[in-house]
Nucleic acid binder design. Structure first.
Lengths: 230, 230
DNA sequence: GTGCGGTCATTTGTACACAACATCATGCAC
DNA sequence: GTGCATGATGTTGTGTACAAATGACCGCAC
């Protein structure tokens, strides 16, 4: 076996899937947008069939909704309907570091530290999109701290479902520069805390830190959407 | 709109999906079995296309594995690889009753109580398949105790992935009658405990009870597969 | 007898044509 | 002018033919 045929087909599927999901989560495909299977097929130089395979999965995961005769529509999100998702995300965050914890090696640890530099650079030139990307890389690094496959899979699902709401909320604010700056500071603090916890080998502490930060992040978003009454 | 066209297509998809998943979990389709898309298409009086949509989802969820040129194969399972799945299942079990708890109404409560009768009847005529079915009904009833949609979805995924191992282990034992009787007793005890907790309004306690029973169930299975050394 | 190569049957993956369905514009009746 | 029927247009869902890939079988050389 030359080792390429079938694996190539599979990797292509994963590539298209990851790309489309990324576009949805970065709001390149904003909620409500209609995707055309034929356009996507043309972009990836294939027919509708493999594209439909990807769209079906994204629909199963709640990112899309295909309606016969109408189109494939990016699902809408709002902070209220995501409350349950966040509640579960908070719980799962704590489980990372508790179930099948994996101590990172030197190289992995260096990747964590590199995020601190990226945060600092971002502070000089704030950009919501770049922030979202760093946040995503950080998340994936965190997932390497547990070997529990189902936990990783579910956490990833919840993460991608909730990450859109941040960019959407930020885009709505008239002066979102302040919020962005503040969020970047919060985030850098979280990364620093977690790096410290990792360095002292307290993987379970990582889970607790992460849990509280996810919860607080949601609280801030929620407050932003629901101006408090006296 | 006469209200039937598209919804019918969707309900058909769900029906086929639930049926195939059920067959896999009840070992009607045992691990390693090869399914033929064309056969399934014929059974459901349709073409391969809708069947492939269902198989793709079952593959995404880890029940099947399609191999080009070979067939669609029911995935194998073993107690060791399911350890992580069980660990997460235990944690999620506790969250039911904690996240968005829903107090059951009188009718729902009656359904719980009815399970006790089914258990008692089962004691008189032990049957692994019927036991698995009661267990499944009980699980679905438990899911009505939380309104957290993602939690329900994930719990369901983990439940179906782990339920197969029980029947598989039981089928292997030479004298599985004893084990079955014992398991039925354990299970009836669990149902009774949980009914009592529900009646006193302690939904969070339900989660704790469930957690410990799932954990102990796994421990028994694990011990069965790994004869203890002194 | 054994190992190797090729041929064939079988099955999933892909491409494409067509059906089902929803939406919007158009025009006609009143 | 308004309301409704009707057709045009566009999109996803389904059926089907064909390509790609795998494994089994057979025959042949040695």
């Amino acid at each position: 076996m030359a080792g390429g045929g079938k694996r190539e087909a599979r990797s292509r599927f994963e590539r298209i899937y990851a790309l489309l999901r990324s576009r949805i989560c970065l709001l390149d495909y904003p909620p409500g947008m209609r995707l055309r299977e034929e356009d996507l097929a043309e972009e990836f130089a294939t027919s509708r069939t493999p594209v439909r395979r990807v769209l079906a999965r994204l629909e199963d995961e709640g990112f899309l909704r295909s309606v016969h005769g109408v189109g494939t529509i990016v699902t809408d999100i709002d902070i209220d309907s995501l409350q349950q998702v966040y509640q579960l995300r908070v719980e799962l965050a704590e489980l990372v570091g508790k179930l099948s914890p994996v101590r990172p090696d030197a190289a992995r640890l260096e990747e964590f530290r590199a995020l601190l530099d990226r945060c600092d650079r971002l502070k000089g030139e704030p950009d919501a999109r770049e922030f979202a990307r760093i946040n995503m890389d950080f998340f994936h690094l965190l997932m390497t701290l547990t070997a529990n496959e189902p936990l990783r899979e579910f956490s990833e699902r919840l993460y991608y479902q909730t990450t859109r709401i941040w960019l959407k909320t930020a885009a709505r604010l008239t002066r979102y520069e302040d919020m962005l700056q503040a969020e970047i500071r919060f985030f850098r603090h979280e990364v620093a805390d977690i790096v410290a916890a990792i360095e002292s080998g307290e993987l379970e502490t990582v889970g607790h830190i992460r849990r509280s930060h996810v919860a607080m992040s949601f609280a801030r978003l929620y407050a932003e959407a629901h101006p408090q009454s006296p």
